[in-house]
Simulated assay, not measured.
Amino acid sequence: MDWTLKAQAARDALPEHIRKVIDAARAELVTARDPYFRGIDTDAELPQDFSVEPARSSDPKGPRILYLDNGHGWMRYTFVQRVEDPQIIVEEVFWQ
């Protein structure tokens, strides 16, 4: 998983306990069978306080938003599907 510089800086500026939540979300994304979480209830394997949805419903293979801690924050990411080296790129991190 890679981070844009802006997303990495936003993550690093957060309090330690929030960074741990983001790191847990990162682990869920990296180990997910399908980081797009397509279909009905495919994000059921995520912890109860996480959920995923497309950033735009008109772009089903575009960016996704992973909501953290019951919607108190999110990570916007893209998934580049490659045979040898699939790549998840975090574009934005937000916490309120």
Rank of each mutant, 00 (worst) to 15 (best):
I22F: 13
P86E: 02
E91D: 10
L66M: 13
Y36N: 00
Y36D: 00
Y67D: 02
G71P: 10
N70I: 12
L5E: 15
G39S: 00
L46W: 12
V90Q: 06
S57W: 11
V21F: 06
N70C: 03
L46N: 05
R19F: 11
R64V: 07
Q87K: 12
L14C: 10
T31L: 00
Y77D: 05
M1A: 07
R82M: 08
V83P: 08
P54D: 05
I89W: 00
D85T: 13
H17D: 15
V93H: 08
R26A: 09
G71D: 03
P63H: 12
I22K: 03
W3L: 06
D69T: 11
V83E: 03
D85H: 13
E92N: 11
F37T: 06
L29R: 08
A9G: 12
R26W: 11
S57D: 14
D85F: 10
S57E: 13
I65D: 01
P86V: 02
A10S: 11
R19I: 02
Q8S: 15
D43G: 08
T31Q: 12
D49P: 09
A25T: 06
E91G: 14
T42C: 07
D85S: 13
G73M: 12
T78W: 01
N70F: 10
R33L: 10
G39T: 03
L66H: 03
I88S: 09
R33N: 07
Q87V: 09
Y36F: 14
E84A: 15
L14S: 05
L66Y: 14
E92W: 09
E91W: 10
I22Q: 07
M75F: 13
L14E: 05
V90G: 02
V30E: 05
W95P: 02
E45S: 11
R76S: 04
I65M: 00
K6A: 07
V90E: 03
I89R: 05
I65Y: 03
D85V: 11
L14I: 14
G73W: 14
E53C: 02
V83H: 09
L68N: 08
T42K: 00
H17S: 12
Q87G: 01
E92M: 09
R56L: 10
R26C: 10
L5P: 08
R76W: 14
E45W: 05
L68C: 14
W95H: 02
R26Q: 14
F79E: 00
I18R: 12
P54W: 06
R82C: 06
I40F: 03
A13Y: 01
D2W: 02
